[in-house]
Amino acid sequence: MQLRISHLSKSFQANAILSDVSFETNDTEFVAIVGPSGCGKTTMLSIIAGFENATSGSVSLDGRLLSSAGSDRLMIFQDSALFPHLTTRENIEFGLKHKGMTSHHRRQLACSALDAVGLGPFLHYFPFQLSGGMRKLVEIVRATILTNPAPLLLCDEALGQLDALTRAHTQDVIQRLWMESPRTVLWVTHDLEEACYCADRIIVMSPRPGTVTAELTIPFPRPRDSMLRTSVELQVLRRRLFDLLDAAEPDESERRPA
């Protein structure tokens, strides 16, 4: 899916949050978005998902202008959005069910997807009985299990609350799922290594009001494995990314609340 954001701006009352954001994604591209806290990343994803209106500018998907929420885009929120009254398996089946898949078929699909990420034993658990990391993983499976057509995936710091090891493991799971059924992903993260490791391209945003200040293409071939994490090439990229973010940061003396 080709997403095109053009001249997107957003203000809450008089506060400019996003100013003139423009970028495009190619079909089945994994795009990471990094930027300082409060620069409007969540706001931008909410606008793309159709939950909020832009003040000006437009969002289009495969040439169609988007205005309201739809099942062609799927957002994974910063906070858990699993349905608390459904078990792990029922949560995962939810989207399949509303695509009209038969109950037998979707059950099979859900069980094998859960087994593949090691959540098989937690099939019948309710969300409150899972750990935070497991909950995120279930949400990711619930989103990526939808294919033909796969919705545009909008991820808002999905792995932000996980420990380093679980996070690395989950990144590998995501890469595998993405390679099995490729789709366009917008992946907001604070973790620069994660951005370099997972993405095809990284979009760097300025402090509020957020706008695109730089783009980095990540050349590493796939599948990427954990050797890459500690490789010099990745660390060099990460350093460049850090410098790009740091350069955009105003000095302490210039900073004032919006």
Binding site: A69, S71, L74, M75, A81, L82, F83, F94, H98, P151
Partner: peptide, 12 residues
């Protein structure tokens, strides 16, 4: 978030 998630997942 429940409403938004359900919308994304195609629920009427």
């Amino acid at each position: 978030l429940m409403v938004r998630a359900a919308q994304c997942l195609g629920a009427s």
